[in-house]
Amino acid sequence: MNYEILLPNSSFKECAVFIKSNFKEIYYVEAGFKIFDNYLIGVPPIPIAVDGDFIIMPYVKPCHGCFVLRIPGKEEGERLRTREQAK
């Protein structure tokens, strides 16, 4: 996966605050939400930002803590928008 790390080795809470503080288009998903063929780990509701054609999301690794990743994902962004409209 092609990604950029925006915030390394932090707590999940710090990553969630970072996403909510730095991006405008935020969607909240449940734990286990599937995105980029991964199931999201975290304390729900988990914030995911859409920024143009990029997805900004928390990513938890057991040995390394939580990261905020910026990943190209136009289709996943559209999926999040459609999901929100269907609510």
Partner: peptide, 10 residues
């Protein structure tokens, strides 16, 4: 660690 809390919540 904090990661464990994330897995617990999940």
């Amino acid at each position: 660690s904090d990661s464990g809390i994330s897995y617990l919540a999940t």
